[in-house]
Write a protein that binds this DNA or RNA. Structure first.
Lengths: 248, 248
DNA sequence: TAAAGTATGTTGCAGTTGCAACGTTTGAAA
DNA sequence: TTTCAAACGTTGCAACTGCAACATACTTTA
C-alpha cells in the first residue's frame, strides 16, 4: 500500500473522478490507473504545446494555468486550476498532441493517473494476462465506475468551458467582465455582503477575458463610477440595480 | 428488430460513439440506449435554454446550430453540427439544464439515445431485474465499449472547443477570422488549388466569431486587397505569404 | 421573366479598444 | 524605516469595431 497516494485520495477523494469508490478500493484503483505524484515548482512548465500527455492530472495543492501563447508573446489563460481540479483529460484520453502550455503558478503537487488501463481493451479471452487485466468481477466493477466518473468529469468540464465561451463571445470588455463576474458570483462562495473573490490579478483577468489590461482597468473604473461594481484588489461586489423600478 | 434505427446505425456507424460495435449488436445497443429517431423542420427549435435534455442527439441528416441568444437579440453560434455529429452529451450526461438553444437549420433527422442506461448503476445483486440490467457478460462488454466510446467522443468535442476558444480569444476580427479559416483549412478537405468551403454564410460566420457582420465584411475586403485571402461566397483560399523571404 | 426576398458589400460616424508611456499604490525585502 | 519591484490605475492617441443605413448582387418563387 502506497501511503502518499492513499493520502492524496483522501485529499481529493470527493473529487468527481473518485466518487462512489470506497477507501478500501483505493489501492486497487491506484494500481489500475498507475497513479503517482509529482511536484512542480512555481513558474515551472508541467507540459508544453506539442507534447503527448499520457496522464490525467489532478491538483493536490498549488495552482496551475492552462494557457495558449502565440508568436507575439500574447498569452491567453484557458483555465485556472486549483486543488481538486483535473486537467489533461482531453489529451490523455483522446490521444491528441497538446495544443496548450501547462504551467504551475505556485509550488504544486499533481496526482497523475493514466486512463489507458480503463480505456483500452480487456477484450476478454484474447488477453493473455487474464487474471490481471480482465480481472475479477470486482475489478470490472471498479473500471465501470471509473469510466462513469470520467464521463461525468468530462460533462462538468464541458459545461464549464461553454460558460467560458459565453464570456469570450461578448463584444465589449464591459460585457465580458460582467458575464465572468456574474458567473463567479453564482458559482462561488460570497459573504453576507455579496463580496466574492476571484483567483486572478488584473493581468491574468485580462488574459482570461482576452482583452488589454489597461483597457480592462479603465472599464472597471467606469463601472465603479457608474455604481455597478465595487472592487478592491481581487475582491468584488456586483451592485444589483433595479433601474426599471426606480424609474417608475 | 427496428429497421429504421438499424439503417441509421449504418449511416453513422462509423461515428465515434459506435465504433468497435458489430452490426449484429446494433439491436441490443439500440435497446440499451433506448434509441429512437425524430425529425425536425427547418428553423424548428429542438430544445430551448432551460430544458432538461435526457438524450444525446446524433445528426442523421440536415444541419443543427447550438446557439446562445441574449436579451438584446444578439446570438452567438456555439457549434455547427452536420451529419454524424453528436450534441447534447454535456447536458444529458451531466444532468445540467440546457444553457443553449438548439435549432434545426435545415430539415433534420436526429437519432436520440439515452445515456442513462450505461451511466447508471447495474449495481449487481441489488438490482431486481438482474437478467436485463446487469445482464449477460456480452451486454456488460457492450456497455464498457459504449462508455469508452463516449469518453472518446467527449475528448474530441473538448479538443474542438479548445480550438473554438482560441479563435474567440484573438483581439482583432482579422485574427479571429484567419485563426478560424486556418483551422478549417487544416481539418477539412480542400481541392488542389487550396480552395476550401465553410459551412457558414456571412451572418453566421460573424455570429460564430462574435463580431459584427458588416465589420467582418470590411475586414474581409481589406484582406482581399492585401492579397492574403481570396474568397467567393463560402469558398476560401488562404494565400501563403513568404514575406520574410521576399524581403531579402 | 418579373418581383420579392435574401445575402453580401460599402460607407460614415460615434464609441471602444489596443497600446505605450507614465504615475501611484502596495507589499515584501533589506 | 527605507528601498525596490510588482501590481494597478490613468492618460492620450491611433486604430478598430459596432451599428445603422444604404447599395448591389444573387435566389427563389410566382
Amino acid at each position: 500500500m502506497n501511503t502518499a497516494i492513499n493520502e492524496s485520495f483522501g485529499l481529493i477523494g470527493n473529487s468527481q473522478l473518485f466518487s462512489d469508490i470506497a477507501p478500501s478500493d483505493w489501492d486497487e484503483v491506484a494500481d489500475i490507473l498507475e497513479a503517482d505524484i509529482k511536484s512542480f515548482g512555481r513558474g515551472e512548465y508541467i507540459a508544453y504545446s506539442g507534447d503527448r500527455l499520457r496522464y490525467i492530472g489532478i491538483v493536490l495543492s498549488g495552482r496551475i494555468h492552462i494557457m495558449k501563447d502565440d508568436f507575439y508573446g500574447n498569452s491567453v489563460i484557458l483555465t485556472d486550476l486549483n486543488r481538486g481540479d483535473a486537467f489533461g483529460e482531453t489529451f490523455a484520453c483522446g490521444g491528441f498532441e497538446l495544443t496548450v502550455n501547462i504551467r504551475a503558478e505556485e509550488d504544486t503537487e499533481v496526482l497523475r493517473i493514466k486512463p489507458e488501463g480503463i480505456l483500452k481493451g480487456s477484450a476478454g479471452a484474447k488477453n493473455k494476462n487474464l487474471e490481471k487485466d480482465c480481472g475479477s468481477y470486482h475489478r470490472q466493477e471498479l473500471v465501470l465506475t471509473l469510466l462513469r466518473n470520467l464521463v461525468k468529469l468530462f460533462s462538468s468540464k464541458n459545461f464549464f468551458i461553454t460558460g467560458r465561451i459565453e464570456h469570450l463571445s461578448k463584444k465589449k470588455t464591459e460585457d465580458k467582465l460582467l458575464s465572468y463576474l456574474t458567473d463567479v458570483e453564482r458559482r462561488g462562495k460570497k459573504d453576507k455582503n455579496g463580496v466574492f473573490e476571484i483567483n486572478f490579478n488584473r493581468q491574468e483577468l485580462a488574459d482570461y477575458l482576452a482583452v488589454d489590461r489597461s483597457a480592462l482597468s479603465s472599464v472597471m473604473g467606469r463601472l465603479r463610477k457608474r455604481g455597478v461594481l465595487e472592487f478592491k484588489k481581487n475582491k468584488f461586489r456586483i451592485i444589483k440595480r433595479t433601474d426599471s423600478l426606480k424609474e417608475i
